[in-house]
């Protein structure tokens, strides 16, 4: 009986506490809290218990295929970025944003050709975040490297510092954009592992879903049972520009 009472009291207390917090946040700082709280529920904060990562098997990546690139463009609204009127198409190709691209390499000695997708490598020690004067470039606890578009001043120092040329500057006014990927003229952006998906409980990225050849495996690097951790255990993989010791979240095999 008494334990029941205690349980009820606890519930009541918890209810009152939550109600009080709700009233306070509505009155004191609605903008701040709504903003921070929107993508994920407060019960599930981002922690370093998870590290999102990816293994790309270049042996499976097919030359001429651009499914991952197309999927990324659609998922993140990059296909909605229109060429400004009067722009030179050739110059525009260099100025338009891209989060993922396909690269084909040839070994100088053996002549062997390799195809792979390249994007933000989500470094554990990201040079872009190191150099960012305002801290707009940052690494989340779960390993995702992102840009806080509220404090990015558009200095482009992160683009100078990125060893993978993974970042794009928005050179033009953008009329249409997805709500989950806000985009504004004058800020820098790059692949964020489809963070809006992960924050809403999904566990895959658009590029991974689109890859017909199963060349991309994504998941939690810290979970030994995740497909990516298992794949990394079974195949030889490497980091691009491993000499920089950035401990990248994206690994490659067959390169």
């Amino acid at each position: 009986m008494s334990s029941n009472n205690e349980s009820i009291d606890r519930k009541r207390r918890s209810f009152l506490g939550k109600a009080g917090a709700a009233v306070a946040t509505t009155v004191v700082a609605p903008g701040v809290v709504l903003h921070a709280a929107a993508p994920r529920s407060p019960e599930q904060p981002v922690t370093d218990a998870v590290r999102w990562g990816m293994l790309i098997d270049a042996n499976k990546c097919a030359s001429g295929c651009s499914d991952c690139v197309q999927a990324c463009e659609e998922e993140n609204g990059l296909n909605l970025v229109q060429m400004p009127e009067g722009a030179d198409p050739e110059e525009w190709a260099r100025q338009r944003p891209r989060w993922i691209r396909q690269i084909q390499l040839q070994d100088n000695l053996t002549g062997q050709v390799t195809t792979l997708p390249m994007m933000c490598q989500h470094c554990e020690e990201p040079p872009c975040a190191d150099v960012c004067p305002t801290g707009a470039s940052f690494r989340r606890a779960d390993g995702i490297v992102m840009v806080d578009r509220h404090i990015c001043i558009g200095c482009r120092y992160c683009m100078m510092a990125c060893p993978y040329k993974a970042r794009s500057f928005i050179h033009e006014e953008v009329e249409e954009k997805p709500t989950h990927t806000p985009r504004g003229k004058g800020c820098v952006e790059s692949c964020n592992f489809c963070v809006h998906r992960l924050d809403n409980g999904r566990t895959t990225t658009a590029c991974q879903d689109a890859c017909r050849h199963q060349a991309i495996v994504f998941g939690d690097l810290k979970d030994k049972n995740s497909p990516v951790a298992k794949a990394l255990e079974s195949v030889k993989s490497r980091q691009i520009r491993a000499d920089l010791q950035l401990n990248t979240g994206v690994r490659y095999s067959g390169v």
């Binding site: 891209r98 691209r101 396909q102 690269i103 084909q104 390499l105 040839q106 070994d107 100088n108 390799t114």
Partner: peptide, 9 residues
Amino acid sequence: GKTVIASGF
């Protein structure tokens, strides 16, 4: 040790 022979960006 490798040459980029094609790139989307």
